[in-house]
Design a protein around this nucleic acid. Sequence first.
DNA 1: CGTGTTTTAGAGCGAACGATCTAAAACGGG
DNA 2: CCCGTTTTAGATCGTTCGCTCTAAAACACG
Lengths: 204, 204
Amino acid sequence: MARPREFDEGTVLDAAMQCFWTGGFEATSTRDLAERMRMTPASIYNAFGDKRALFRRALDHYIAQTLHKRIARVEGCPSPAAAITQFLNDVVERSLDDPQNRGCLLVNSAVEASHDAEMREALAGELEQYEAFFRRILAAAQAAGEATTAVSAEDGARQLLATVLGIRVLCRVRPDRDLLAGAANAALTLLGLPPLPANGTLSE
Amino acid sequence: MARPREFDEGTVLDAAMQCFWTGGFEATSTRDLAERMRMTPASIYNAFGDKRALFRRALDHYIAQTLHKRIARVEGCPSPAAAITQFLNDVVERSLDDPQNRGCLLVNSAVEASHDAEMREALAGELEQYEAFFRRILAAAQAAGEATTAVSAEDGARQLLATVLGIRVLCRVRPDRDLLAGAANAALTLLGLPPLPANGTLSE
DNA sequence: CGTGTTTTAGAGCGAACGATCTAAAACGGG
DNA sequence: CCCGTTTTAGATCGTTCGCTCTAAAACACG
């Protein structure tokens, strides 16, 4: 057969993800990537194609690793209302926890890489999944009498999605607890949902 | 004296702003700028210093031209409640009107250029102005009985700010009226404010 | 109409970019 | 134990980057 690979794909994708997360697509050079991934340029191009393809793989890695896990984590909540609150708490706490204030790679990519049609579609699809998650769980909360019915589950979900994205923008330049938690709490309160825990506590 | 400049500063700053708005800071080259501004590289560097300084000037130009004007436009509204609604309507309509889906240069810059400390402070200061605007006008609406007091004006303003920023992220990849207007309308409805006009109408 | 001063034009600087080339290295199968 | 295949390493490809250089051009002033 052939010479086996010396790298673990998950590990190097994680390293690439960190690079792109910190610097964005354009400002991250292939040399930055090679150093962080501990691979030579030739190995990177042999394994992943080009920089753009590597970025897409790193973004998929981020989505599977960070975003889908966050959804899965709150699915086990005792009530739909508590799930939404915990989701927002998670977003706020992770935003404040990062000393580099990198925000969310999905949001950063949506803003930076939207000129790439293929990328834009992938990002749109992911955002639709989040909207659908909010819609489903908010509808359940409404049915259980735990959330207001002053707005439809559709619009309430859109509002929650926009709020989360807005918090992820704000944390890039104003990583301030009062600001981020205030925005989240107002959304929760107005929807009739429980507020964030008093002290910032990051579950798990 | 000396040879007079052949360019109008406002005109070339507008051209530079368009470049950065479309492509972002990193992806816009000095040659792109020179072509769009109709100036030679030497003239640009003589007049503005370097690329980063030009970007700051272009961003200031955008803020004065687009954002401050939007605030000034809604200040003349008959009621504070109507002013907030018109502001959100303005954001939604401009988001949908742009065939390039460039969103908001302030938001794009907050996400891309937050690693630059000086830039981050300038962006944070600008976002604070928007928060203060929402806070002031929401407090007035509450005092007039036009908005709910279920949340404080402080948190309500933070929520409105996050919603606007979120809409600006969404419009980059999902320029969909139902999505953007739904998010805005949910925020307005929950705050007890009038909804957006039924048909998308861009005032003035 | 020189003279001094600033802005133009356009070539081009060194550095960094994304990507590739040549070989050596590391395996499994016959 | 070579053979075929793939991955490594490191140099380096051509291009583009941000930026600067030399001169000519365009004014105000004495």
